[in-house]
Design a protein around this nucleic acid. Structure first.
Lengths: 172, 172
DNA sequence: CACTTGTGTCCAATTATTTGACACTATAGG
DNA sequence: CCTATAGTGTCAAATAATTGGACACAAGTG
């Protein structure tokens, strides 16, 4: 039970119930919402480890636009909470756009319970990984240096440090 | 013509020709390969700004496994070059897996020429963005501090710096 | 050739970081 | 209630890193 709270947002009560049962064994607490309107408030209150978000809320509109909007809004306000999208009207373009907008994963209805649990666990585990500051730094330095084809001056400039400091960061 | 070289890998010669024509106006140089076997060598030689990679090479196998394998291999060796996947047998699971494996984007055949160009330009622009070191640092610090619920000692520990240094990094 | 740009390398002055310490506040367990 | 335990905020002195400037030198360009 190390996975804390999860927030599930879907306008179909039957699905909320089903998901709740499915996830009850993995999460300490399963909070459900039948509309994303109050999502931002609830998230601030509950501080969930992850969010499972349906993509369609307006009846008859299956474009996923609304889910995408909420994804962006939630992700902007809580960039550290992984958001997994779920939809019955899956299409490749939508999935790609969702992932590029910050979604941690994308699941299609009907879902497989084990897969859903695995996906959510994965998302949380990944979001929880913490990199030491110096490792982050040296990786970034190497990347920028690569992009500058080894031009130390330009790389140092882009990194916002002096050329000599860049030397130091590479030597060891 | 600021987009340099692009490498296109597809086993269908007709598609290579079509893509070449489509991209000739945007890229200084369009290099084509009809098999991914030599991709790693060619990439090292050409240092392309981006790679457009087909997902299916074995005749009759449309699972995309082979493309996924090559995506991983190329991405591991050249993590700074954006790889855009293209496939005729699109499915959501495959697209999601590809993006999570490091693909910059995912396009389906038949493609729209303008969209393909836009996607490639986007991928290159995004890969070219360079973040100053101190900005990267402060973002990461904030994120870790968040995850530790404000526990300075633990955050400093995870970041690999002293508690006092963490104070300094937050103050300004 | 002159001119520009970048490279290594050094130095002294300035900043950051670390280590250790201190008094203080919570909080759980006996 | 008392006492470990863990964290906070702050300070100071020693140490390490960063800066800005300088220099001679290499490569590329008009």
């Amino acid at each position: 039970m190390k996975y804390g709270t999860i927030l599930v947002i879907d306008d179909n009560p039957a699905i909320l119930t089903a998901v709740k049962i499915c996830l009850a064994g993995t999460f300490e607490r399963v909070v459900t919402l039948n509309s994303p309107e109050k999502a931002l408030v609830i998230i601030a209150q509950e501080n969930p480890s992850a969010i499972l978000l349906d993509m369609n809320f307006s009846l008859g509109v299956n474009s996923g636009q609304e889910g995408m909007m909420w994804l962006s809004a939630i992700h902007r306000k809580f960039p550290d909470i992984p958001i997994v999208l779920i939809t019955a009207y899956a299409d490749v373009k939508l999935a790609v756009r969702a992932l590029k907008n910050g979604a941690a994963d994308f699941v299609t209805k009907p879902w497989d319970n084990d897969e859903l649990i695995r996906v959510l666990k994965d998302a949380i585990d990944k979001a929880g990984e913490i990199i030491p500051l110096d490792q982050l730094e040296s990786e970034h330095v190497r990347k920028v240096l690569n992009k500058c084809d080894g031009n130390m001056k330009k790389a140092a400039d882009l990194l916002g440090i002096s050329r000599q400091t860049l030397y130091n960061k590479i030597k060891p």
